[in-house]
């Protein structure tokens, strides 16, 4: 059956595909955290799913980052679940000790089979300007970051 075949292929390719995704994930996380001041990885650096890059940006809110990314052709999801039925931030982020406002500024990038390194580079390339624009608007941004 189709599903059985799919599971068989997935199992066979899992070790190599996981390695490929891990490299992309680590490049994405490093690129984002290095290029944006006051940005941090949520969760453990290595004990995490190979496709999961959850990053938070201080002083701004997740949904406005998502809208900006969407305008540039990038799909991600937000820790603030702003597009979901509740506006509450993710209970998981709160449980790992983040403050509400930190959880609100979180964005979850998930990588998949179709993603390639150029796309990771593209996200790293466009994020600094998106964050800068939103921080310029935010009353929470410290003075030294507004210039």
């Amino acid at each position: 059956m189709g599903f059985g075949k799919a599971a068989e292929i997935a199992q066979k390719e899992m070790p190599t595909e996981s390695e490929r995704l891990k490299k992309l994930r680590d490049k994405l996380v490093k690129g984002l955290v290095d290029s944006v001041p006051y940005s941090f990885l949520n969760g453990h650096p290595t004990k995490r799913l190979p496709d999961n890059a959850a990053v938070r940006f201080s002083f701004i809110e997740g949904e406005s980052i998502l809208l900006s990314l969407d305008m540039m052709g990038v799909a991600a999801s937000s820790g603030s679940a702003c597009t979901a039925k509740t506006l509450e931030p993710s209970h998981v982020l709160l449980a790992i000790g983040l403050k509400h406002e930190e959880a609100h500024g979180s964005v979850l990038f998930t990588l998949g089979r179709q993603n390639i390194e150029e796309e990771v580079d593209y996200v790293i390339d466009i994020i600094p300007d998106i964050v800068k624009r939103l921080r310029k608007m935010s009353p929470l941004t410290p003075k030294e970051l507004r210039a």
Binding site: I60, E61, G62, E63, S64, S80, M137, S138, P139, L140
Partner: peptide, 10 residues
């Protein structure tokens, strides 16, 4: 104005 928030807030 200065706003921290989602698209609707801005």
């Amino acid at each position: 104005f200065k706003t921290f928030g989602c698209g609707a807030a801005i």
